[in-house]
Every structure is written in structure tokens, then in C-alpha cells.
Design a protein around this nucleic acid. Structure first.
Lengths: 238, 238
DNA sequence: ACCTGAACACCGTTCAAGT
DNA sequence: ACCTGAACACCGTTCAAGT
């Protein structure tokens, strides 16, 4: 460019500085990366602006306020998990979907929480919802299929979101499990002592700790599916 | 007081202005009230200070930083729900506990979330945990009693916390349900259309909406208890 | 010991002005 | 249209100084 030599220290435009133009896509990609590293609610708009080497106002110009950026991130994450094959029995179909969802959501802490509160955008969730509800309809859930779907999807988002929070605040949890572990031999409160023993065993073994998340999730998922299966039997019975 | 007439506009000390002394108790009570009105994370330390007619620094002096105030609020809320009678069968005992918990937690939005992330203080939760674990032990859950207790308590906190969030953002939800309702007759995606129809019916009827929370909670609680009961049968079988 | 009043380093958001 | 640079009204937190 003709004016490339005009200013030594601070060029006044992006291309004068050799920087690529800022696009909505680049902004959202950067936000996704920040979310993967720090969690959805642990980065600031100013950090995001710095990540794309721009001013905060540029974010507003291309995407909108913080909420708009967050929504875009959530939509992009939702688009990441694959659809299980339609031939699967309903229970296997959902087990597979939820297992995949957990893997993806765990990479972007905070997205599960946002999903469980706001729900997904129609556009982003359409095909998954459609397939899921149809699987339930085909299984015989009838008019209850949408409600059942919401219950199951909710359960998954909830359990992933506590995982997020607990991983994020693992220091807090470690401190907490120490306090809990101090009551292991209280003869007055045998129930509390048992809890204390259990938490202590969990807190001192990192392997069991990691496995605890997996077990808790699988347990919740299977119990949820059990409950839904029981409901299906009741529907078919009447 | 002797110096009551010293300054007309701005008295320099609290008793000169006829104000009661600030105590930790009064601060936490005010924080509890703010939490009931706006939710645990929707009031600021400056608002709290204003509520007790003091400077922000006074909060620090008597209680500590925001986290300390929040912890105190959570502990106070935990102390509010009564213990079900010990004679009840385990399932009835927990059903009663959880129903009471939901009533109390719903009055203080945000506390359930905090609980599901950080867990309760040992001191605040000791007696409830003790009784609950003992009820499970008596029912025959053996060493698994603490884990089962955590699963059930977690489930309750999670479902109450989404209720909190969804009530808080009801405007957002209303907007959302409108968008969802727009796909009621999409021939390409019959599953999505069914979901759309279901959400639309829910969003346009406030009675069904309120009842949706109740149903969702009861459903989750009963399915959770079902799952735990099945686990008990398995333990007894081996 | 208790409170005042101002300051600090942040945050999301807005806006006139430049190119 | 895109970007700059500064400003606005907030936030939690800290601190010297007063009584």
C-alpha cells in the first residue's frame, strides 16, 4: 500500500498493519476457542477482542453484544455432535446420542448450562430433535414423545453442566472434601461418618474421582431411560 | 446524643444519624431478602450495602467478600427445611424431604445451583445428611448409601436450579417458545412439528406452564427413586 | 472497633470521529 | 462499511483516614 511507510509505530488501519479483516466467523471461532479454554462465562468481551486483535466495538459491529456471541458459540457446539443411525432401537439411539453429546459438551464448559436454561435454537437443534422425537413416536410414546424428549435432553444437559462446574472449581471441591473427611469417626452421627468416609475415599484417589463423573453420568442416564421405559409400558398397557 | 445538632445534612456516624449498628446477622438477613427478590447472583454488594444503609467496605468488615456473604446465605437457607420423621420408609422419607426442599429452595433462586456446584457446608447439612444416610443404611443399601444419597440430592438440586433459571428468564423462554411454535406444520420434519406443537401448547397456557414445572420435578424425582429402588433390589439379590 | 469516602482495576456497552 | 479511541456507568475490592 502507498501509505505503508506513513506511521512507524501505530498503523491506523488493519491492512496497513498487515492484519486480516475481522469477520463474524473469525470472531465466533475465537470465542469458541476461549470457551474451550476458560468456559463460556469466564472470558470477557475485551479478551475476545484482543484474541482477534481488534477493539471491543468491532465485536459489536460484526456480531452484536456478548449474548449474541454466546448464542453463536452455543449453536456451533450443538452442530458438532453426530446423529446416531435411525435404525437403532429408541433406547440405544438415545444412549448413543447422549454419550456423544457429553463428549462434545465437556469440551466447551458452560454450554450445557446455557442449553439447560435457554434451550437450543430451533435452527441448530432441528434435525436432532426431529430424529429423536420420531424415534420415540415409532417406539409407541404417542403424544408424550415431545415431553419425554425434553425430559431426557434436560437430564443430560444438567449432569454435564454440574460436571463442568465441578471441574472448573476443583480447588473448591478439594477443600470441601477435606472438610467433609474430618467427620469420619463421629459416634453421634453414624450416617454422617459414613458419608465422610465415602467422600474422603473419593477425594484422595484421582482415578476414582474421574471415574465418579463417568459413573454418575451413566447412572443418571440409565435411571432416566429406565423411568421412561416404565412410562412406555404404562402407555402401552392402557 | 450531645452532638446530634452538630451537622444538619450529613451526620458522620451511624448513631448520630439514629441508625442501628451494622451486624453480620443484619447483613446476612438483608442478603437473604435480596436473594428472595432478585436471585443469589442478581444483587450487587453495593445494593446489599445500601439495603443496610452502609458503605460497601462495611460488608467486608463484618462478613467478608461477596463469596463469604453468599456462603452465609446458602447455609441459612439449608437450615430452613425440616427433617421428615425418622420412622418413615426410606422412599417416603426422601420424597417428603425433597418436596420440602423444593419449596424452600424455590423461594431463594440461585441457592440450588450453588448447592449443586459447591455442595453444602458440613456444619449446615450435617443432621440432614446423617438422617438420610441412616435411612438408606437401614433400608439395606449398605456401603452404597452415601453415593445413593449424593445422587438423589444432586438430582433435586439440579431440577430446582433449572426451575430457578427458567423462571428468572421467563421472557427469554416466551420468546423461545414462539420461535419453536412456528414449525408446527413442517411436513419434512414430522418429529420437529410434534415438538413444536407441544411447546406451543405449553407456552400459550400459563396454567399448564406452572404445572409443567411440578410435573417435571415429580417425574424426575420418582424416576430417580425408581432407579435407586431397582439398585436396592440388585444389592439384596446378590 | 467501627465507619467514611475515595480510589483502583476491571467490566459491558455506546458513540463520534476517522479511513 | 469498517475501524479507532475514548468515554460512560457500572462492578468487586482495598485502604488510609476519621470517630
Amino acid at each position: 500500500m502507498a501509505n505503508s511507510a506513513a506511521l512507524p509505530g501505530r498503523p491506523r488501519s488493519r491492512d496497513a498493519a498487515g492484519l486480516p479483516a475481522v469477520t463474524p466467523d473469525r470472531i465466533i471461532a475465537a470465542a469458541l476457542e476461549l470457551t474451550a479454554q476458560h468456559g463460556l462465562s469466564n472470558w470477557t468481551l475485551r479478551q475476545l477482542a484482543a484474541a482477534v486483535e481488534a477493539y471491543p466495538a468491532v465485536i459489536y459491529h460484526h456480531v452484536g453484544d456478548r449474548d449474541a456471541v454466546v448464542n453463536a458459540v452455543v449453536d456451533r457446539v450443538i452442530g458438532m455432535y453426530p446423529l446416531p443411525p435411525a435404525e437403532l432401537p429408541w433406547r440405544d439411539w438415545f444412549r448413543m446420542l447422549f454419550t456423544e453429546q457429553r463428549v462434545v459438551l465437556s469440551k466447551y464448559p458452560g454450554v450445557a448450562r446455557r442449553l439447560s436454561v435457554n434451550g437450543p435454537t430451533v435452527h441448530a437443534a432441528a434435525t436432532t430433535v426431529d430424529r429423536g422425537v420420531r424415534a420415540l413416536q415409532a417406539a409407541g410414546f404417542g403424544d408424550e414423545a415431545p415431553a419425554i424428549y425434553r425430559f431426557l435432553a434436560n437430564l443430560v444437559c444438567l449432569f454435564v453442566s454440574v460436571e463442568d462446574d465441578q471441574r472448573c472449581r476443583s480447588d473448591m471441591l478439594a477443600r470441601n472434601s477435606v472438610t467433609w473427611g474430618e467427620h469420619r469417626d463421629d459416634p453421634e452421627l453414624p450416617g454422617l461418618a459414613a458419608m465422610s468416609e465415602s467422600v474422603h475415599a473419593l477425594g484422595t484417589d484421582p482415578d476414582r474421582w474421574e471415574n465418579y463423573f463417568n459413573e454418575q453420568f451413566d447412572y443418571a442416564m440409565e435411571r432416566g431411560l429406565d423411568g421412561v421405559a416404565a412410562r412406555l409400558a404404562a402407555i402401552k398397557g392402557t
